[in-house]
């Protein structure tokens, strides 16, 4: 039902203006400025081309995308198995388990990086376990694998929540119908459950991908050696003082993240839930 009570221009303005002024002054204008600065370097507008033509930048771009893709895939598989299980089965301690699984929601990237060090660092748990069995201590916290692990750690809580919410909305009658038609449990999973969860996969996958592309804290904590785009932007800006290139890289990175979310939204048809 639409609203019939008139809202005057003055009232609309009073509701809108505070946010609009703030947003324009501190986001739109700075981003516009940054956009022009991105072309102010020696390369001019071809700074954007350098991302593809310069081997260093290009490799960083590919690394970033690959890490984000692997992160997304792992997170979705893990969260789907656990999320559907938790939604479907009541058992003592379930609430506690859900609570524990979603507690790291909104841990900042730096802390997530530290968690990875706890697990896979030089004195990490995984190393200890291997040492216990007389093997070599694997230390992968400071590599791409560690970074990936951190992003998965970061993304699981939110993704599990989304998938649980989606699984709750699945119509159990569809599954009963599929079974009544002679479908095996595997058929039910493939033909009913997974398609039903597709929108949740798309939306949470996109958020997962976008965060992994743009995240900075985890990589910063783990090592400056990991050459992903956010780290590169940071070093361009602070060490090389190459603001123009940092700006161009920022815009490219922003475009990738935004594109992932926008594509997901048009695929899901509905508004993708906000990251967080």
């Amino acid at each position: 039902m639409s609203h019939s009570l008139a809202i005057s221009r003055r009232q609309s303005a009073l509701l809108l203006l505070p946010a609009a002024i703030f947003f324009t002054a501190f986001f739109l204008l700075p981003m516009l400025r940054l956009f022009f600065i991105s072309a102010s370097g020696q390369l001019g507008w071809s700074a954007y081309l350098a991302i593809v033509s310069d081997a260093n930048y290009f490799r960083a771009l590919w690394t970033t995308l690959a890490v984000a893709a692997v992160t997304t895939l792992l997170t979705l598989v893990i969260s789907a198995i656990s999320g559907v299980f938790l939604q479907r089965h009541a058992f003592p301690g379930r609430a506690l388990l859900v609570s524990a699984l979603t507690l790291p929601l909104a841990f900042p990237g730096v802390v997530v990086g530290f968690m990875v060090i706890m697990l896979a660092g030089r004195q990490g748990l995984i190393g200890e376990v291997f040492a216990l069995f007389g093997g070599e201590r694997p230390v992968f916290a400071y590599s791409l694998a560690g970074l990936c692990m951190g992003y998965v750690y970061f993304s699981i809580p939110r993704t599990i929540l989304t998938i649980m919410a989606a699984a709750e909305k699945l119509d159990p009658r569809l599954e009963e119908a599929a079974r009544s038609l002679g479908g095996s449990p595997w058929h039910v999973v493939r033909d009913v459950i997974l398609p039903g969860l597709r929108p949740a996969f798309v939306s949470s996958g996109a958020i997962c991908f976008a965060t992994a592309v743009g995240a900075f804290g985890t990589a910063f904590t783990l090592a400056t050696r990991i050459e992903v785009l956010p780290m590169l932007i940071y070093t361009e800006f602070t060490l090389s003082a190459n603001i123009a290139m940092a700006a161009a890289l920022s815009f490219s990175l922003g475009a990738v993240a935004w594109l992932a979310l926008a594509l997901a939204r048009s695929a899901a048809g509905a508004t993708v839930a906000a990251a967080g």
Partner: peptide
Amino acid sequence: LPVAVPGLATALGLIVA
């Protein structure tokens, strides 16, 4: 947008402006 765009970009924008 400030959520979709990496925080680094927003921060750079604020710094240059």
